[in-house]
């Protein structure tokens, strides 16, 4: 008997389509050398010093106007929107691999940050933020008296 299958995928599995979508999403986010582990964007590198922390992220194509930084206690957030790709009737696209759209990423830092002593720079598509630990948060050395 001829049977017509109305579902192009296996209709015994109601989640097949969902999984396919998830697979596509994973491929989308895992394609690059960055965000390979978490899927969070942008990928960041963090360094710590004595009483300061440096964070860097690659955001090519943005300008310092497109990036918004905010800090609250130990949490730092980067928000940004990529400029719209060029549009026009005479444009024929061949490849579109560069990131687009907007993002928001929050990063937990190893200690509290003094919001008045933040040095943020954006150079050659790389954002570098240097943050200081507030004075009252620094570890205190305690003298031990011997009897």
């Amino acid at each position: 008997m001829l049977q017509t299958n109305y579902f192009p995928w296996n209709y015994n599995d109601p989640f097949a389509d969902m999984r396919r979508l998830q697979g596509a999403m994973n491929r989308l986010f895992d394609g690059g050398r960055s965000s390979e582990r978490s899927g969070a964007y942008p990928s960041v590198n963090v360094w710590v010093g004595q009483d300061s922390v440096v964070m860097s992220a690659e955001l090519p194509g943005l300008t310092d106007q497109d990036i918004e930084l905010s800090v609250k206690d130990t949490m730092m957030s980067i928000r940004g929107t990529y400029p719209e790709p060029e549009t026009g009737d005479d444009i024929r696209w061949h490849r579109r691999e560069r990131p687009a759209g907007s993002f928001l990423r929050s990063i937990e830092l190893p200690f509290r940050i003094d919001p008045d002593h933040i040095d943020a720079r954006f150079e050659n598509g790389v954002l570098t933020v240097e943050m200081q630990r507030p004075e009252d948060d620094k570890p205190k050395h305690i003298k031990i008296k011997s009897s």
């Binding site: 690059g32 690659e58 955001l59 090519p60 194509g61 790709p85 060029e86 026009g88 005479d90 444009i91 024929r92 696209w93 061949h94 490849r95 579109r96 691999e97 560069r98 990131p99 050659n124 598509g125 790389v126």
Partner: peptide, 22 residues
């Protein structure tokens, strides 16, 4: 990562190279 498109008689290529100086 690159974007490539044709605009009229011009091929435009955009390539992301963060961290590279001009």
């Amino acid at each position: 990562a690159v974007d490539i498109f044709e605009k009229g008689d011009t091929t435009v290529i955009l390539a992301d190279m963060p961290g590279v100086a001009s």
